[in-house]
């Protein structure tokens, strides 16, 4: 088995001639927490959309676990174990918190097309769902309608729902965005906890989070890879410092 769980070669996405992502070669090592950073509009979310097949690439190819998934349907890629979250929190707002996680678990039951069975056949999933909720500190919210929860909790729920699939690889798009210090600390702990036995790629503007969480970093600028390496390597790279203009301290860079 290759060291790399995910490889892209020449990945390119053009929107009406404008290259949002151009010629990106990513190599993500199995088991790593890998950060994708870069200024606003660098193409980070677009890369996620390409990897999860939400957008078809203009050129290039994507290998996941050694298989070419470039032309696969998005749901099929998700079923392979390459599961994403979204930059704007993605929950099912009018379902309860418990039901949200159950949606993630349900496919394993193999009854997702069974329209003749009663809903209570899903109750067998409740205990596993409660375990997942406990992992993200949401036990007491199980019966809450999701839209009534604070923002930070919704992001935690999103992670729990993603974990329900037990994916080999998780893509997190700015998991700490819009959160206070306390919530950030909680999410960082959570990501570290769930990174056991899986690979995580995360887009993250908060560089202190990147510094203490991520094994490797890819810096993206105007659609192209500017640098790749460990935090120390990348933060000493003059081109990267240049890109984060007017600041020697990358921690301020995202503002």
């Amino acid at each position: 088995m290759s060291d790399y769980i995910l490889e892209t070669t020449g990945l390119t996405k053009e929107f009406k001639g404008f290259a949002a992502v151009s010629d990106v070669n990513l190599n993500i090592r199995r088991g790593d927490i890998h950060a994708l950073i870069g200024p606003n509009g660098a193409g980070k979310t677009t890369v996620f959309n390409l990897l999860t097949k939400f957008l078809p690439p203009t050129r290039g190819c994507i290998l996941f676990q050694g298989q070419d998934i470039t032309h696969e349907a998005p749901a099929a890629t998700a079923r392979r174990g390459l599961v994403r979250s979204f930059q704007i929190s993605a929950t099912f707002p009018h379902l309860t918190v418990l039901e949200n996680v159950r949606i993630g678990l349900q496919r394993k039951l193999g009854t997702e097309f069974h329209f003749w069975k009663p809903e209570r056949t899903l109750d067998v999933l409740n205990s596993r769902a409660m375990e997942l909720l406990a992992d993200v500190d949401l036990t007491q919210f199980a019966g809450t309608i999701t839209s009534e929860m604070p923002y930070g909790r919704k992001r935690a729920l999103e992670i729990a729902t993603t974990l329900a699939l037990d994916p080999a690889m998780m893509l997190l798009d700015e998991p700490t965005q819009g959160m206070g210090q306390e919530d950030i600390a909680r999410v960082v702990d959570l990501i570290r906890k769930v990174s056991a036995n899986r690979t995580i790629v995360m887009v993250e503007h908060n560089l202190s989070v990147v510094a203490n969480l991520c094994d490797r970093i890819t810096v993206l600028q105007r659609g192209s890879v500017l640098a790749e390496g460990t935090y120390d390597e990348v933060s000493k790279n003059p081109q990267v410092l240049e890109a984060y203009v007017g600041s020697n301290d990358m921690n301020d860079a995202h503002h």
Binding site: R79, A90, T91, E99, I103, T111, E112, F113, K117, T121
Partner: peptide, 21 residues
């Protein structure tokens, strides 16, 4: 039904339902 539960999820947030496979 289990099927109806997924229909609900699709109506609430289609991209998320896709991303869950």
């Amino acid at each position: 039904s289990p099927f109806g539960q997924i229909l609900k999820a699709i109506r609430e947030n289609e991209p998320r339902a896709i991303s869950l496979g």
